[in-house]
């Protein structure tokens, strides 16, 4: 039986969580910003290796500027998490350390990917400086718009979950 894993994608509003999932699942992108309320759930089967697949159930959570206010029920039974911020809006990563502390406190012992999205909005060197200035280390710099590093992100997470299983 194909093993399913629940992944929550969370972060402040407008950082591109829905766009990342849409790019990963349907390989499409829209410039129109439609706010997500509550949760949207989608699924994608990924091939981890030649004879190994995994079904990722992606919970696209409503963005909030207060990570502590995320409803606990959404996080129940989560296998992996993706925390997304917008590299072009400092308000979404100004309190990143505190945000991540809250997330890991609520979901201990699960793989967590920290993702700076909208990487297409800055030059690579400028981006690195910006992250360095804010003492931020990220797992992936993605661009849902351009498709940069999106598949790699979810594949990496799936691989981690596979080795955890």
């Amino acid at each position: 039986m194909l093993k399913s894993k629940k992944i929550v994608v969370l972060g402040h509003f407008g950082v591109g969580k829905t766009s990342l999932i849409r790019r990963f699942v349907t390989d499409t992108f829209s410039d129109n910003y439609t706010v997500t309320i509550g949760v949207h759930i989608t699924k994608k089967v990924v091939e981890i290796s030649v004879d190994k697949t995994m079904s990722l159930i992606l919970w696209d959570l409503e963005g909030t500027d207060d990570i502590a206010s995320i409803r606990k029920a959404y996080l129940l039974g989560t296998h992996g998490a993706v925390f997304v911020f917008d590299i072009s809006r400092p308000s979404t990563f100004q309190h990143l350390k505190e945000d991540l502390r809250i997330v890991t406190e609520q979901m201990p012992d699960i793989p967590l990917m920290v993702v700076g999205n909208k990487s297409d909005l800055a030059e690579e060197s400028e981006l690195k400086n910006r992250l360095q200035e804010n003492s931020i280390s990220v797992d992936f710099l993605t661009s849902a718009k351009m498709g940069t590093a999106v598949n790699e992100l979810f594949l990496k997470l799936a691989t981690l979950l596979s080795s955890d299983a």
């Binding site: 509550g38 949207h40 759930i41 409503e62 409803r71 039974g77």
Partner: peptide, 17 residues
């Protein structure tokens, strides 16, 4: 994972699409 919870344990999920 919820199915093995204690009897009368309630979990509410809001705004599910």
């Amino acid at each position: 994972s919820l199915f093995d919870g204690n009897e009368e344990e309630e979990t509410k999920f809001h705004c599910i699409h």
